[in-house]
């Protein structure tokens, strides 16, 4: 059932809400368009036991609890202005579920240096038609929508781009987060000889190619590290058992799930779907992995989430 997939979009997306275009509103879910593949290095005791990070007061030389900690901004050496969580919360932008497209710009005007993080916008069942109309119109006119929106209590500047019938949301850096190119110093455009430029153009055309080569984009460091780890693991060398609570945040399989949700959501508006929805799709929080639950908790800004076990996360997300 379409509504069922909408539920899944709400549950699995990082953010869900409405893209408004004039008076047209398009309910969508936001999914990551990238994932880090960096290997997380663990800090271990000499015998391999994973260590945990704890706060210490160097003056009293003792471990302190989060309740004893306050945030401070250093205005001059050793002098702090303190700020409470409540104050910061009061300053946070109001939770909103809207991306209001009130400005469109030619895509080529958006400088590449503004691009921060890519996300996909996936339409909910009732919004495929306006979604397609907006996408088609933007693609045809080579325009991107610019808006600000609130996600996880933070305000983002975002460019909505249409590519192959899909809407991509690229969060953008704010203008004051980018330096001026002039920080590199003077460059004089005078006195470059035409022949030098011509020679350069020729060298460039000698190395011309049509497209990216994925082999060139390989993360060779991660590959080598993975090989080393795998080699030692299969040889049983320097191996310790990982404690159960430590086996969290494993991302494997998550992307495939995500693809399923997106695919189902993009399927034809009529036919096919009827009767194919089984009750197994009706997933509850219990069926989510710990890392999925953790991400939910993060979105809901549940404090203390990193020290919660699976059941506690379920409870917190349900009540959150």
């Amino acid at each position: 059932m379409p509504e069922q997939n909408d539920k899944e979009i709400r549950r699995r997306s990082i953010w869900y809400g409405t893209v408004t275009f004039g008076l047209v509103s398009i309910p969508v879910g936001l999914f990551p368009g990238q994932r880090s593949q960096r290997i997380r290095m663990r800090m271990l005791a000499p015998d391999g036991t994973p260590l945990v990070r704890q706060y210490y007061c160097p003056r009293e030389d003792r471990q302190i609890e989060p309740e004893e900690i306050i945030r401070g901004y250093e205005i001059e050496k050793g002098k702090f202005v303190t700020v409470t969580e409540d104050e910061l919360e009061a300053l946070a932008p109001e939770k909103s579920r809207e991306i209001d497209l009130r400005r469109f710009v030619p895509v080529e005007q958006i400088g590449l240096k503004f691009l921060d993080r890519p996300y996909f916008l996936v339409p909910m069942s009732q919004s495929r038609k306006p979604y397609r109309l907006l996408t088609e119109t933007m693609e045809k006119s080579k325009k991107a929508g610019i808006a600000t929106f609130v996600m996880r209590s933070r305000e983002y500047l975002v460019a909505i781009l249409a590519e192959n019938g899909i809407l991509i949301a690229e969060t953008l850096r704010f203008a004051d987060e980018l330096r001026s190119p002039e920080i590199t110093g003077e460059v004089s455009s005078k006195n470059i000889s035409g022949t030098r430029i011509k020679a350069m153009v020729k060298e460039i055309s000698n190395a011309a190619a049509d497209d990216l080569d994925m082999d060139e984009l390989k993360d060779t460091y991660t590959e080598h590290l993975t090989e080393l780890v795998e080699q030692k693991r299969s040889a049983g060398q320097d191996l310790v058992e990982s404690p159960e609570e430590e086996r969290q945040f494993r991302e494997a399989g998550k992307v495939i799930d995500l693809m399923q949700v997106m695919k189902r959501s993009m399927e034809k508006e009529s036919g096919k779907r009827k009767g194919s929805g089984s009750d197994e799709d009706e997933e509850s929080l219990e069926s989510l992995s710990k890392s999925e639950l953790y991400n939910k908790a993060k979105e809901l800004q549940i404090s203390g989430r990193s020290s919660m076990n699976r059941q506690e996360l379920i409870e917190a997300v349900r009540n959150g």
């Binding site: 290095m41 663990r42 800090m43 271990l44 005791a45 391999g48 590290l225 320097d238 058992e241 990982s242």
Partner: peptide, 16 residues
């Protein structure tokens, strides 16, 4: 005294 390691998919930690 701190050592470093990587957790594998099989739930073990390989010390490096």
């Amino acid at each position: 005294q701190i050592r470093r390691g990587v957790e594998t998919d099989t739930g073990e930690i390989v010390m490096l």
